[in-house]
């Protein structure tokens, strides 16, 4: 098996750009011809960006947050409120939302990031719940549970597009930017620091890594991009409400895609989004009408099976498999 060749092939830099280019072409083609596929592409890219952003704190730094929807909601609500009330362009609102999310993440990070394991997870869940209840019950600001409709005025400046294709590129661009940031982290000091923190905090401290600062930094970076994703999503759906924008399912899904794809790896979240998002949509489409709830039973089962049989996630499992095969072939050859 020429597995080592595949490995070297994929490690060449131009291959990645080729993949992106191919994706772009497919996106363009389907976006024009089939709105339903385009919708799925938008979801895939959006989730890809969100999952990669979550991966910074959840994967690289190993801090399992299930409250990231708080940042998502902050992003969605900030840009929407600014646009609907003051007419400020969502592009600007997106940045304001990201800044706000960064500030909140900074505070939450300092308060909660020294917690370990399940404690951190529960604290972040509680935080997101608080945000949801606040959004639902301050109608003077957020219009409460009734939600805010965004008037449909298609224009690039309004981040509203008539067809799907604009959103396909918007979400693809988002996923790509987050990818670049993650790649930077992956290959630079921050990535090594975070990996070191994930493996062993005590040792990291003794090696001179400022554990607290780096964790908070990861949290802030992660929150910024999740908030941007929130803005993009709200501009796409054109409607924000507390139960959707602060739904626990977003947090769970972000984590899920990363865990499925491979935590703390650059390509894990991308793979996770590419595979799991279509499956989720596909299952609902095929089974949702037949039996109430069957598609979610299947999806949950897939999840459990993944954890049981592929605990390191798809990307890392496959990579290790290829590597061990390669190593074996090499040693076999060496033996001869």
């Amino acid at each position: 098996m020429p597995l080592n060749k595949i490995e070297t092939f994929f490690s060449k830099p131009w291959v990645k750009y080729l993949i992106v280019a191919v994706l772009l072409v497919i996106a363009l083609y389907y976006g024009v011809t089939k709105p339903f596929i385009a919708h799925n592409l938008i979801l895939i890219f959006l989730y890809m960006g969100l999952a990669q952003a979550w991966n910074i704190i959840g994967g690289y730094a190993g801090q399992l947050s299930l409250g990231h929807v708080a940042f998502f909601g902050i992003g969605a609500y900030t840009s929407t409120l600014l646009y609907a009330n003051l007419g400020i362009s969502p592009w600007l609102g997106m940045l304001v939302g990201a800044a706000l999310a960064a500030a909140v993440a900074y505070g939450l990070g300092w308060a909660c990031l020294r917690l370990k394991g399940a404690y951190l997870t529960l604290a972040t869940i509680a935080f997101a719940e608080v945000m949801r209840i606040l959004a639902a019950n301050f109608p003077s600001i957020t219009k409460g549970s009734v939600g805010i409709g965004i008037p449909f005025r298609p224009a690039l400046a309004n981040m509203i597009f008539r067809g799907k294709i604009g959103y396909v590129f918007l979400s693809l661009g988002f996923a790509f930017v987050v990818y670049l940031v993650c790649r930077y982290i992956d290959r630079n000091r921050l990535g090594y620091y975070l990996a070191s923190i994930r493996e062993d905090e005590t040792t990291s401290t003794s090696m001179g890594i400022n554990v607290a600062n780096n964790k908070v930094l990861a949290m802030v970076l992660s929150a910024i991009f999740v908030a941007i994703g929130g803005t993009i999503y709200s501009q796409y759906i054109l409607f924000v409400e507390p139960t959707s924008e602060f739904a626990y399912e977003w947090s769970l899904n972000m984590a899920l895609l990363v865990i499925f794809g491979g935590m703390g790896s650059l390509y894990g979240p991308i793979l996770g989004a590419l595979i799991l998002v279509p499956i989720q949509e596909f299952l609902r489409m095929m089974l949702g009408g037949a039996f109430q709830g069957l598609h979610l039973v299947v999806f949950g089962t897939v999840l459990i099976l993944t954890v049981l049989f592929m605990p390191k996630g798809l990307y890392i499992t496959v990579r290790d498999k290829i590597r061990s095969k390669t190593r074996k072939t090499l040693s076999d050859e060496g033996g001869i």
């Binding site: 399992l64 709830g293 949950g300 999840l303 459990i304 954890v307 605990p311």
Partner: peptide, 23 residues
């Protein structure tokens, strides 16, 4: 397994159980 895996497994179980009951 790491915490994240355990949480995912039980969260998956929760989805399965709630929706099986719905079915």
């Amino acid at each position: 397994a790491p915490h994240s895996m355990q949480i995912m497994a039980t969260a998956g179980l929760s989805t399965v159980m709630a929706n099986a009951a719905l079915m």
